[in-house]
């Protein structure tokens, strides 16, 4: 694996870790229960309105704008991390 690919993977992992930490804190779920490929609707037990809260938290944390249509069909933390990474 090239240096650039490794660097990209490590920054995406870091983004993923920050998302998991933020979700655990905001929705009061033990951090160790959250995993990259979890369906966050099920794991966090959140509805559509709470999903918007999560989106806002993520935008504020990473200081990005993430149009909500980009999240259509996204339900796992790893894919979410990729979407955020593309905006950083």
């Amino acid at each position: 694996m090239g240096e650039f690919a490794q660097e990209l993977m490590s920054t995406t992992d870091q983004t993923l870790d920050e998302i998991l930490n933020l979700a655990a804190t905001h929705f009061k779920v033990p951090r160790e229960k959250l995993h990259a490929d979890d369906d966050f609707f099920k794991t966090l037990g959140i509805d559509s309105l709470q999903t918007l809260d999560l989106l806002t938290k993520l935008e504020n944390h990473f200081r990005i704008e993430l149009p909500d249509y980009e999240l259509q069909g996204v339900s796992d933390f790893r894919t979410l991390a990729g979407k955020i990474q593309a905006r950083l």
């Binding site: 609707f41 509805d47 559509s48 309105l49 999903t51 918007l52 909500d68 249509y69 999240l71 259509q72 339900s75």
Partner: peptide, 8 residues
């Protein structure tokens, strides 16, 4: 019954 009905 979508989980994200508010998302356009």
């Amino acid at each position: 019954s979508a989980a994200q009905p508010y998302l356009p």
